[in-house]
Simulated scan of single mutants.
Amino acid sequence: MLFNSRVVALILAIVVAGVTTAFLSLVPDVTVQSLLVAGLLSFAATYLLVFVTFEFLVFKEIGEIYKVLNKMRNKDFSFTESEEDASTSTNPLKRINREILTFGVNRNKEIEDLRKLEVFRREFLADVSHELKTPVFAAQGFVHTLLDGAVDDKKVRKRFLKRAAKSLDNLDSLIHDLLTLSQIETGEIKMHFEHFDIVVTAREVIDQLENKAEKKGLTIRMDTSYPDPIFVHADAIRIYRVLVNLVSNAIKYTDKGSIQVGFEVEDDMVQVFVRDTGVGIPPEDLDRIFERFFRVDKSRSKESGGTGLGLAIVKHVVEAHNANINVVSTVNEGSNFSFKLPIGQSTAEMEEEAKLELEMMSQDR
Rank of each mutant, 00 (worst) to 15 (best):
K302H: 15
V317N: 04
E359N: 02
R300H: 07
S362H: 09
H316L: 01
F339Y: 11
E352D: 06
Q345K: 13
E303D: 08
S362Q: 08
P342Q: 14
A312F: 02
P342I: 11
L341Q: 11
I325L: 11
E319I: 07
N332A: 01
Q345R: 14
K315S: 05
T307E: 09
A323S: 15
K355R: 04
F339M: 14
T330F: 12
K355S: 00
N324S: 14
V328K: 14
V317T: 05
G310R: 09
T330L: 12
S362E: 04
V328T: 13
N332W: 00
A312I: 05
R300T: 01
N326W: 09
V317L: 05
S329A: 05
V331I: 06
T330Y: 12
V314C: 15
S362K: 12
E351F: 08
E353H: 12
N332S: 02
I343A: 13
A348G: 03
K340I: 06
G310C: 06
R300Y: 07
L356F: 01
E351D: 02
V318L: 03
S346W: 02
G310W: 00
K355N: 01
S338G: 11
I325H: 04
S338N: 15
H321C: 07
E303M: 13
A348H: 04
F337L: 13
S301F: 08
L309F: 04
